[in-house]
Design a protein around this nucleic acid. Structure first.
Length: 101
DNA sequence: GTTGTGACTACCA
DNA sequence: ATGGTAGCCACAA
């Protein structure tokens, strides 16, 4: 199962996130079998093309916030996508009830 | 082989 | 409660 490279596993795990839910980087890294690789998850997602089908917007940090600085284009894009998916925001933070899946 | 980097997390003051 | 600092480890050059 772990023959794949981390980025491929990350793609798989992120793709499994149900609509209307979000997961933290650490959570994803853990599911991949690498509890301490939260950072690498971000690196991998960053390398994804913008037209990827991967729901990278459902991936947030452990605080329940989007990892980008507020006002950033990617931030706004992600937030918009999440809202469309039914995620509710409390300012820049996502409601914790939707944090896990 | 070493060095630098990072869309993070946990801990401590 | 908040803010800052250190640690983590895979990948690219």
């Amino acid at each position: 199962m772990n023959q794949l490279k981390l980025n491929e596993m990350i793609w798989q795990v992120v793709a499994l996130i149900p609509k209307g839910k979000v997961a933290s980087y650490g959570q994803i890294a853990k599911l991949c079998g690498y509890p301490n690789h939260a950072r690498y998850v971000g690196m991998t997602l960053k390398q994804l093309p913008d037209d990827s089908e991967l729901p990278w917007h459902r991936v947030i940090n452990a605080k329940g916030e989007i990892a980008f600085p507020e006002g950033s284009a990617a931030f706004l894009k992600q937030k918009t996508l999440l809202v469309k998916e039914g995620i509710t925001f409390n300012g820049n933070k996502i409601k914790l009830s939707q944090y896990r899946w």
